[in-house]
Simulated scan of single mutants.
Amino acid sequence: MDSCEDAATLEWWANRSACLGRLRVRIVVRTAGDDWTCEATLEAAEDRESFDFLMQLDPHFTLRFYDASILLVKVVEAGVGVVALVAELGLWPATGSATAARNGRDCRRLRQGSG
């Protein structure tokens, strides 16, 4: 199993032009063959109230990496302060290093932030 850690942003979009929340997270991606898992932790504890509010509205967020690649994810509570991110394939175009994560391959590219 290969794994890597990186910083990213969870964004909650009301529509294509209005982002109602941007939350900085630390992600851990683990790959095993074609399978992958991703967990995220909010970087700032004061973001928890905003995060909980947005989760009540809809648990679908855009995961944005610092190379501007994106992936639509469904957020699922996975423990105290930790959430699991599940790729919503086919609902949003994935680009760059998010594509590598989605395919469960080449975790090094994700960690290095290259597309």
Rank of each mutant, 00 (worst) to 15 (best):
S3W: 13
S3K: 10
S3G: 01
C4D: 00
E5D: 08
A7K: 12
A8W: 04
T9G: 01
L10Y: 07
E11T: 01
E11F: 01
E11W: 04
W12R: 03
W13R: 07
A14W: 07
N15R: 09
N15G: 06
R16A: 13
R16Q: 12
R16I: 15
R16E: 05
A18N: 13
G21E: 01
R22W: 03
R22A: 07
R22Y: 01
L23M: 09
R24C: 11
R24T: 10
V25W: 00
V25Q: 00
R26A: 09
R26N: 10
I27A: 05
V28D: 09
V28C: 15
V28L: 15
R30G: 01
R30D: 06
R30F: 08
T31A: 08
A32Q: 07
D34H: 11
D34I: 13
D35F: 09
D35C: 07
W36N: 10
W36Y: 06
T37M: 11
E39M: 12
E39Q: 12
L42I: 09
E43F: 03
E43C: 13
E43L: 14
A45L: 09
E46F: 08
E46A: 14
D47M: 10
D47A: 05
R48T: 14
E49W: 11
E49T: 15
S50M: 15
S50K: 14
F51M: 06
F51C: 01
D52I: 11
F53D: 13
L54M: 12
M55C: 11
L57A: 02
F61S: 02
T62S: 01
T62G: 00
L63R: 12
L63P: 02
F65W: 10
Y66G: 11
Y66E: 09
Y66H: 13
D67H: 08
A68S: 15
S69F: 07
I70V: 14
L71R: 11
L71C: 08
L72R: 12
L72H: 04
L72A: 10
V73I: 07
K74Q: 11
V75L: 02
V76L: 03
V76F: 00
A78Q: 04
A78E: 07
G79H: 05
G79V: 05
V80S: 10
V80W: 04
A84Q: 12
A84T: 02
A84S: 09
V86Y: 08
A87G: 07
L91W: 09
W92L: 05
P93Y: 13
T95G: 01
G96R: 07
G96I: 09
S97T: 11
S97V: 13
S97P: 03
S97C: 08
S97Y: 03
A98W: 02
R102H: 05
N103Y: 08
N103R: 13
G104E: 06
D106L: 02
D106H: 04
C107K: 06
R108F: 08
R109Y: 03
R109P: 00
R109G: 02
R109A: 10
R109W: 06
L110R: 02
R111A: 11
G113R: 02
S114Y: 13
